[in-house]
């Protein structure tokens, strides 16, 4: 039996909204330590990795490891029926073919339950190496969202260069060119408004803006985002979801033919 209860149900709603356009389906792998998901986009150039820890839930029980195949568009339809203040409980019997979602209003005067049909999904699990990156940038997630949104209106790809001067995002397209440079800035009093650049060596990589823009759909989940870059390797974009876990995106760089 699997059961996970979260008082702040809006977090689950935001998570699924952040992922559903990038990945259409994937397995929720549940075990006694929590719920994880690893999924690729349809062209297999980016990878999403979601980790929700058992102790981040208000109640968590998982007697047996299970892979629950989820269609995210369908899960999104069901979660749209939950109120923002609702407590959400996920439930499944061992080897079940449905996942039950129970929504309880804050004052417990409305209780609803929905069964989501599960799918059988073959998925390969990739090993993400734990490595040191040449540059790590922590910045307000809203700032990242604004940069990639603005640049998407100008070009298709972005060159991200990290140097001791700061981190520069450059693009070009039919209308012209654009450069946005962010500097290390720890003066804001609130830590979530700071930009922290940890540079071991300069690095410059090109990425498809469409994906970076898609990752920013996770902005409502976290005040800060971390970008990690190393030459010839995928960019790693990470949002910490409070005490519950994290959502991580990896995107392969564009390289010259």
């Amino acid at each position: 039996m699997f059961e996970a209860r979260i008082t702040q149900g809006s977090v689950l709603k935001k998570l699924v909204e952040a992922l559903k356009e990038l990945v259409t389906e994937g397995n929720f792998d549940v075990s006694s330590t929590g719920l994880t998901l690893q999924a690729m986009d349809s062209s297999h150039v980016c990878l999403v990795s979601l980790t929700l820890r058992d102790d981040g839930f208000d109640h968590y029980r998982c007697d047996r490891n299970m892979a629950m195949g989820i269609h995210f568009g369908n899960l999104s339809k069901i979660l749209k029926c939950a109120g923002n203040e609702d407590t959400i409980t996920l439930k499944a019997e061992d080897n079940a073919d449905t996942l039950t979602l129970m929504f309880e209003s804050a004052n417990q005067d409305r209780i609803s339950d929905f069964d989501l049909k599960l799918m059988s999904i073959e998925s390969e699990h990739l090993g993400i190496p734990d490595q040191d990156y040449s540059a790590e940038i922590k910045m307000p997630s809203a700032e990242y969202q604004r940069i990639v949104r603005d640049l998407t209106s100008i070009g298709d790809t972005v060159l991200i260069s990290a140097t001791k001067e700061g981190i520069k995002f450059s693009t070009s397209g039919d209308v012209g060119t654009a450069n946005i440079t962010l500097r290390h800035n720890t003066t804001p009093e609130k830590p979530e408004e700071q930009t922290i650049i940890d540079l071991k060596e300069p690095v410059a990589l090109t990425f498809a803006l469409r994906y970076l823009n898609n990752f920013s759909k996770a902005t409502p989940l976290a005040p800060q985002v971390k970008l990690s870059l190393t030459k010839d390797l995928p960019i790693f974009v990470e949002y910490q979801v409070g005490d519950l876990g994290n959502v991580r995106f990896f995107l392969a760089p564009k390289i010259d033919d």
Partner: peptide, 13 residues
């Protein structure tokens, strides 16, 4: 420009 698939960076675990 070309783009490799993500599995070419991260092997199967």
């Amino acid at each position: 420009m070309k783009q490799k698939q993500i599995s070419q960076f991260f092997g199967a675990s």
